[in-house]
Design a protein around this nucleic acid. Structure first.
Lengths: 203, 203
DNA sequence: CTCCTTCCCTAACAAGTGTTTGGTAGGTTA
DNA sequence: TAACCTACCAAACACTTGTTAGGGAAGGAG
């Protein structure tokens, strides 16, 4: 009597990988079964629909993400440190849930209208609020520039981070922490050369 | 005897809009027909397959994009001016071909393996080369920082620009030129406050 | 041994898919 | 007038889709 949840997680990982590579709608349930080494109908012993698999993948990822974000936001750091911590946490999440993040990026737009996936819209709103608060308090405290549209800045930071899931490969040249450091350096200081940059790359 | 190509372009625009909103695979040919005000079978008088529509949309967009990029690259500008011109051209392209760009972003990954869409892979390669050359010569000339991984910088710039297609709406608050200016300001100088930024926002 | 549970297979289902075929209303040309 | 072309409709086609029902092999429990 093996522990069932293990097999379940195995299958979900396979499904996530295929969803991320082919897109949710383009992925047939038979293809997931092929990749997992069983037949299409057998998947329905573990899950009650293709949509349930997607649901479980996405909500699992979001739960994980929020537990990390909430920890950062509750730490009471300064705006700049909060931004750094959020970005770093995001890249760690991409490292762990690469497929789920890619799916979220691709399909979230068309899914959030569906009642079952309403939590995607809520999550996006919570995310936006958290980021806007951080950016605004950073502008007030003198950490960030004040001549930029805050909402534009938010989208800029958000997108630059999360699109990375489309090309990032775990175990590649850069660790999530190093990728985060370089991204933060670009987002905060820009790519143009200024006198400081010669050796100010704070470690 | 009205000019046929006009109707053709009309239908392609409708199709592009639906593809962008729902995703290519999730879009049924009947839904396109609905949105265009005719029946599914009638589409096959104008196009010989659903795939052909997608092909025409994407290659049309890429042709347009390259004609603009080539003009910029042939102008012999300095690295920083080239980067600024490329980014501005990109946002103008997003303004004109928003739906096509969104489709390209979403589906290009799964399409480029298909022989018919091989030109997508070629285009991506040409784009990467053009950008890398610009970034490298900018690092050599002292315009850009040298302590960043060039390929990472490339992906950073590329992504930040093109993802904008997922939220940008023509006729919104910001014109493509103004959006480009703000993005360039963030990419080049960063979002962190430095002494200069109080009033150095050139113009 | 028998019973039961877990996990999978075989085989089929109804619904929806992209596409084709034949026809036709209405305008243009001769 | 008749012949023709454009742009569409109506109806069906073969196929794929997600999903279900019934059965069976393997192994632990009594």
């Amino acid at each position: 009597m093996r522990p069932a949840p293990e097999r379940r997680r195995e299958l979900l990982e396979v499904a996530a990988e295929v969803f991320a590579a082919q897109g949710y709608d383009a992925t047939t349930v038979r293809r997931i079964a092929d990749a997992a080494g069983l037949l299409a109908g057998s998947l329905y012993y573990h899950f009650d629909s293709k949509e349930s698999m997607l649901d479980e993948i996405l909500s699992g990822f979001l739960d994980d993400l929020w537990s990390r974000y909430d920890a950062v936001l509750a730490a009471g750091l300064g705006p700049r440190e909060t931004l750094e911590a959020l970005v770093t946490a995001s890249f760690r999440e991409i490292d762990r849930h690469r497929a789920a993040v890619a799916i979220y990026q691709k399909e979230s737009g068309q899914l959030r209208d569906q009642p079952r996936f309403g939590y995607l819209a809520e999550a996006q709103l919570r995310l936006e609020r958290a980021w806007l608060r951080t950016l605004e308090s950073g502008a007030a405290s003198g950490d960030f520039r004040t001549d930029l549209d805050v909402r534009l800045t938010y989208r800029f930071v958000r997108d630059t981070v999360w699109v990375a899931a489309s090309w990032y490969r775990p175990g590649g040249r850069h660790s999530p922490e190093e990728t985060a450091r370089q991204y933060l350096s670009m987002v905060l200081d820009g790519v143009a050369l200024r006198d400081r940059h010669r050796r100010t790359n704070k470690e």
